[in-house]
Amino acid sequence: MSTTGERSTGTVYEQVQASPEFADLRRRLRRFVFPMSVAFLAWYLAYVLLASYAPGFMAIKVLGNINIGLIIGLLQFVSTFAITTIYVRYANKHLDPAAEKIRQQIEGAE
C-alpha cells in the first residue's frame, strides 16, 4: 500500500494482496499448513495401509477385545483434535496479529 503521494492502481484489496505484509502472512500460513497436512496424510495413509496389508498386526489384541487397529483408529481422532489445538495456538500467536494489522490498514484506506 502506497503511503507516498503517488497514485496507486487497483482496489485497496489488490494493493493489500500485493503488499509484503500479506505475502508474509501467506508464507506463515503455508509454513504451518503444508507440513502439518503432509504429516497427517502420511499418518492416515499408514493406518489405511496397515489395515489393508497387515491385518494380522492390526488384529493383535491389546486388552480384551481392543486391538491395535482400534487403538490406531481412535488415535486418528486424537491427532485431529491435537492438530486443531496446535493450529489455533499457532494462529493466535503468528497469524491473527498480522491479519489484524492488515485489516486495520484496509479499514484505514477505505
Rank of each mutant, 00 (worst) to 15 (best):
G10I: 08
T11C: 07
Y13E: 13
Y13M: 13
E14L: 11
Q15Y: 05
Q15T: 06
V16I: 15
Q17I: 13
Q17E: 15
S19D: 04
S19K: 02
P20S: 12
P20Y: 04
F22Q: 07
F22W: 09
A23T: 13
D24F: 03
L25S: 08
R26F: 06
R28T: 09
R28K: 12
L29C: 10
L29S: 13
R30G: 12
R30Q: 11
R31T: 10
F34C: 05
P35C: 00
V38W: 02
A39R: 00
F40K: 00
F40D: 00
A42R: 00
L45I: 03
L45R: 01
A46V: 04
A46E: 00
Y47C: 00
V48W: 04
L49I: 05
L50P: 01
S52L: 13
Y53P: 01
A54G: 04
P55K: 06
P55Q: 08
G56F: 02
F57W: 06
F57M: 04
F57Y: 08
M58G: 03
M58K: 03
A59Q: 13
A59P: 08
I60V: 11
I60D: 10
K61G: 15
K61F: 11
K61L: 12
L63Y: 14
L63A: 13
G64N: 15
G64H: 08
G64P: 11
G64V: 10
G64L: 12
N67K: 09
N67E: 13
N67L: 10
I72D: 06
I72A: 13
G73T: 03
L74R: 09
L75I: 10
L75T: 13
Q76M: 09
Q76S: 07
F77Y: 13
S79F: 14
T80E: 10
T80I: 14
F81L: 15
A82T: 11
A82Q: 07
A82C: 07
A82Y: 12
I83K: 07
I83L: 14
T84R: 12
T85R: 14
T85H: 13
I86S: 05
I86D: 13
I86V: 14
I86C: 08
Y87F: 15
V88K: 15
Y90H: 05
Y90K: 04
A91S: 15
K93Y: 06
L95G: 10
D96N: 15
P97I: 00
A98Q: 04
A98W: 04
A99L: 09
E100C: 04
E100D: 09
K101A: 04
I102W: 00
